[in-house]
Design a protein around this nucleic acid. Structure first.
Lengths: 193, 193
DNA sequence: CCTACCGATCGGTAGG
DNA sequence: CCTACCGATCGGTAGG
C-alpha cells in the first residue's frame, strides 16, 4: 500500500516536472534526458514511472480538458441570464488556468504533439466546449442581452483573451486570480470605451 | 544578374516553405529533411541557400517585427484622439497578421527558439511595441476617452485577441481581413454587452 | 544542387 | 532506479 502510494506521488512528480519543462522549452524540444536530469535520475529510469514521453502529454492535456468542461457544466444549466452564464463561465475558465499555469500553457500550446487517436479526441472536446460558449452568446443575442455581433468573432475574442493568461499573469504579483477573472470578464462584456 | 535574382527568389521559396512547416509542426519538430523533402531537394542542398535552420527563424521573426512596428509608427503621431489611435493601431496590427498568417503564427509561437542574442533583441522589440499601445490607453484614460480599467489587463486582452487570429481566421472564408479588423476593434473597444 | 558522411542526440528496451 | 546499449534521426560539413 505504501509502495503504491509512493509510486503514485513519484509519477505525479515526474509529470509536474515535465509540465514545467514542456511549458518552458516546448514538448518537442524537451528531451527525456532533460526531464531525468531535472529529477536527478537517469533517463532510462523514467520508464519505470511512465510508458512514454507522449503519455505525459496526454495526461496533462486530458486532465486540463476535464477541468474546463466541469467548470462549464457548473454554470450551463443554472437558472440565470445568458449574460450571467457567460460571466460565470469566463470566471470558471480563468480559475482553471490560474490554478495551474504551466499545465494550462501546455494544454494550450503543446496539444498538437498528441498523436493519432488522441489529437482527434482532444480537438473534439475542444470544439464542443467552444460551441457551448457560442450557444450562450447566441441565446444572449436572441434575448437582447448582447449586441448582435459576429458570434464566431466574439467567442474567439473571449477565448483568446482568457487563453493568453499563462503568457502574462504572474501568480506572485499584486492581482489575485479571482480579481483577474472578474476584471477580464467585465472588460470583455462591457468593453474599454 | 539573373543568377542573383534566381538565388534570391529560391531563398525566399525556402523560407516560405519553412514558414508553413514551422507553423504546422513547430520549429523544433521540423527537420531540415522535412523542409528539403517539401522542396524536392536533398537536406544538404538547403545550406547553399541558408546558413542554418535558425537563420530562417530569425528572418521570419524580425521581418514580422518590422512590419508591426511600421504599422504602429503610421498612427502614433497622427493628430487624432487616443480612441482613434487605438482603433487604427488595432486595424494595422490585424492587417499585418492577415497579410501572412503562417509567418504571423511563427512570429507568435516559435520566437522562443531564437538563440542567445536574438531572443533578447526580439523580446526588447516586443515589449517596446506593447508599451506604445499601453501609452495610448493610458493617455486615453487621462483624457476620459476610456474607462479607468486595469491598463496591463486591457493591453493584454487586446493583443491576445489580435494574436489569436492565425488560429481561427480562414482567409478563404466569407469575412475579408478588412472587415475582421474593424469588427475586432469595435468589439474590443465597445464590448459585447 | 548532389553524394557521402560526421558526431551528437533522440526515445526507448533488456536485464538486473 | 541503474548500466549498457540500440536503431533512428538530428543539424550540418566536405568536396564536388
Amino acid at each position: 500500500m505504501i509502495e503504491v502510494e509512493r509510486k503514485n506521488t513519484r509519477k505525479e512528480q515526474v509529470i509536474q516536472t515535465a509540465t514545467e519543462l514542456f511549458k518552458d522549452k516546448g514538448y518537442a524540444a524537451t528531451s527525456m534526458r532533460d526531464l531525468a536530469n531535472e529529477l536527478g535520475i537517469e533517463a532510462a529510469s523514467l520508464y519505470y514511472h511512465i510508458k512514454s514521453k507522449e503519455e505525459i502529454l496526454q495526461s496533462i492535456c486530458f486532465e486540463m480538458a476535464d477541468a474546463f468542461i466541469q467548470g462549464l457544466d457548473d454554470v450551463e444549466h443554472r437558472d440565470i441570464s445568458n449574460r450571467e452564464k457567460l460571466y460565470q463561465g469566463i470566471i470558471n475558465h480563468t480559475k482553471v488556468i490560474a490554478r495551474d499555469l504551466p499545465a494550462a500553457a501546455v494544454f494550450l500550446n503543446e496539444y498538437r504533439y498528441l498523436s493519432a487517436p488522441w489529437l482527434k479526441k482532444f480537438l473534439r472536446l475542444r470544439i464542443n466546449y467552444i460551441n457551448r460558449f457560442k450557444k450562450i452568446i447566441e441565446d444572449g443575442i436572441k434575448e437582447g442581452e448582447f449586441k448582435n455581433v459576429n458570434k464566431k468573432l466574439a467567442v474567439m475574442t473571449i477565448f483568446s483573451s482568457l487563453n493568453w493568461m499563462p503568457n502574462w499573469y504572474n501568480p506572485k504579483g499584486k492581482i489575485d486570480p479571482e480579481a483577474v477573472s472578474k476584471q477580464l470578464a467585465q472588460l470583455l462584456i462591457n468593453g474599454l470605451g
